[in-house]
Design a protein around this nucleic acid. Structure first.
Length: 493
RNA sequence: CGGGGUGUAGCGUAGCCCGGUAUCGCGCCACAUUUGGGAUGUGGAGGUCGUAGGUUCGAAUCCUGCCACCCCGACCA
């Protein structure tokens, strides 16, 4: 491994790719478009999962698991849904291999062709709704609030670690409701859960909004989303929540007996976030020294690095270090004491910076003499010396971690604000997009044609119609037709 | 899937134009000296040059096919 990461300012995507690999988050696999998520990367994902799962349970959802394979016929039941996914589905056609007669290895046994081909799920609406048909008879069975943690496959042309891979991990919530309003409320609620997760845990400020018709989920009536801004000025969709109307209920004939004695189709929602959040986390906060992780998602909060000459000194430092370690752990913090003698302190400093550990405590003979430790913050790269007689280290560290979490969030928020520009003419739009990037808050006439045209001309898409957006009369940036609200445009991942 | 680029040791590379069995750095192993920001020295291990063919006495090098990866488009979370 060579020193130093590529600079963000020189080659942002190279920086990202290298960082993902060098920080031991993930690597490319032998299978095209798929990734190996390495233990360190996976432990961040596990922390995300744990928190999200808790939030889902708190809002009344339960977990279940549905099959990986979907009969081909299911996918064609909802017309716009097929259209949305057909181009990127992996298909299972056979169920057996055999040895080639010429000894060249195994081949697909042509006699083992499946009666009906199976699709590797690109998303599970179809299997789940076909199951819900049996689970729902009466309004008493509603609402049905189910989530599943799973992998899905979308055969992507161009892949990038975490941001877009052919197989990825995610959660998909699928709910069924007796009324339209209740389903809409659920959709909005889950968007808000995602937004809260992003902001509080990932320290990632997001814009809550609704997708335009072009950008919304195939099969949905409305797609709500959270959009984040990356350091290179490109937007990234961090989560989506869909109001499905009665589309899937009608496609899979899911009806229920109403309280009033009638029979009606149920109302559905689905919502998901994926390992793509890992990409967002990396691109939002990290710097040229490596990862910067918000304490709430960092697998290791604090690393203690001893500086010593000889075994005797190490054992004296270890004794003190273990005391501190015990105190910090008692506070519920994840602490690592790196007493490996195979690497020098300087090497370890660089290593933990690369991996984004929020706080580093260094302890050497001088500290032992003075009863101090050196505390270094990953986010600001600043150091301070703490006198252990004057402050309770566990309280100090614990508060500092909270400060770091806030600082990272605030920095990302400031950046997002700075990268959000109101534009009023097409010339301005093109200029800002080219020279600055970021979100462009602009008027749009509300038609798909115009959106399409803007995309062709500028490569920018409507990221969302912000829920907190300024409602004001204006003229469409491209056509000059009347508009009632500003929407957010950006080039996006 | 279109356009461009790259495949040489675990990683990064030189050599390719001009054919003669592979260079350097990092990492790895051993020993010694080191340890408050990626240590130094000495010795050592490690390569079917992406892959399959072809040309040739001889191919990393020339030719053809295929594969993978990267960048830019179209598609998407």
């Amino acid at each position: 491994m060579s020193k130093g990461l590529p600079k963000r300012s020189e080659d942002y995507s190279l920086w990202y790719n290298e960082l993902v690999k060098r920080a031991d988050l993930a690597e490319n696999s032998p299978v095209r478009g798929c990734m190996v998520i390495k233990p360190y990367g996976y432990s961040i994902w596990e922390k995300m999962q744990a928190q999200l799962d808790k939030m889902f349970k708190e809002t009344g959802h339960v977990n279940a698991y549905f099959p990986l394979f979907i009969p081909k016929s299911y996918l064609s039941k909802e017309a716009s849904h097929v259209e949305g996914f057909a181009k990127e589905c992996a298909v299972v056609t056979h169920y057996r291999l055999k040895n080639a007669e010429d000894g060249s290895g195994v081949i697909v046994d042509p006699d083992a062709k499946l009666e009906e081909e199976l699709i590797v799920r690109p998303t599970s609406e179809t299997v789940i709704w076909s199951t819900y048909k049996n689970w729902i008879q009466s309004y008493r069975d509603l609402p049905l609030l189910v989530n599943q943690w799973a992998n899905v496959v979308r055969w992507e042309m161009r892949t990038r670690l975490f941001l877009r891979t052919s197989e990825f991990l995610w959660q998909e919530g699928h709910t069924a409701h007796a009324s339209k309003q209740e389903a809409i409320d659920e959709t909005v609620q889950m968007m808000n859960v995602y937004a809260e997760f992003a902001e509080t845990y990932m320290a990632l400020p997001v814009v809550r909004g609704v997708k335009s018709v072009n950008e919304r989920f195939a099969g949905a009536e409305d797609t709500y989303c959270i959009e984040a801004m990356m350091q290179d000025g490109k937007a990234l969709q961090a989560g989506t929540s869909h109001f499905l109307g009665q589309n899937f209920a009608k496609a899979f004939d899911v009806k229920f007996a109403t309280k009033e004695g009638g029979l009606d189709y149920v109302w559905g929602t689905s919502w998901g976030v994926s390992t793509r959040l890992m990409g967002a986390l990396i691109m939002a906060h990290s710097d040229d020294n490596g990862l910067v992780l918000p304490p709430k998602l960092a697998p290791i909060h604090v690393v203690i690095v001893p500086i010593y000459k000889g075994d005797e000194e190490l054992s004296r430092i270890s004794e003190k270090a273990n005391e501190i370690l015990a105190k910090l752990r008692a506070k519920g913090l994840s602490v690592k004491f790196d007493n490996r003698d195979t690497h020098k302190p300087g090497w370890k400093f660089a290593e933990y910076e690369l991996k984004g550990v929020p706080l580093r405590i260094a302890m050497g003979p001088r500290d032992l003499e003075n009863n101090t430790v050196e505390l270094a913050r990953r986010d600001t790269l600043t150091k301070e010396t703490i006198n252990l007689a004057e402050v309770a280290i566990e309280d100090y560290v614990s508060e500092l971690l909270d400060t770091i979490q806030e600082t990272i969030y605030q920095k990302a928020l400031d950046f997002r604000e700075e990268m959000t520009t109101e534009v009023n003419t097409w010339e301005e739009f093109e200029k800002v997009l080219e020279e600055k990037g970021g979100f462009l808050s602009a008027h749009w006439d509300g038609t798909s044609d115009t959106e399409e045209k803007i995309k062709e001309l500028s490569k920018a898409t409507i990221r969302c119609i912000p829920l907190s957006g300024k409602v004001e009369e204006g003229k469409c940036i491209l056509t000059g037709k009347p508009s009632k609200q500003r929407v957010f445009f950006a080039r996006a991942y």
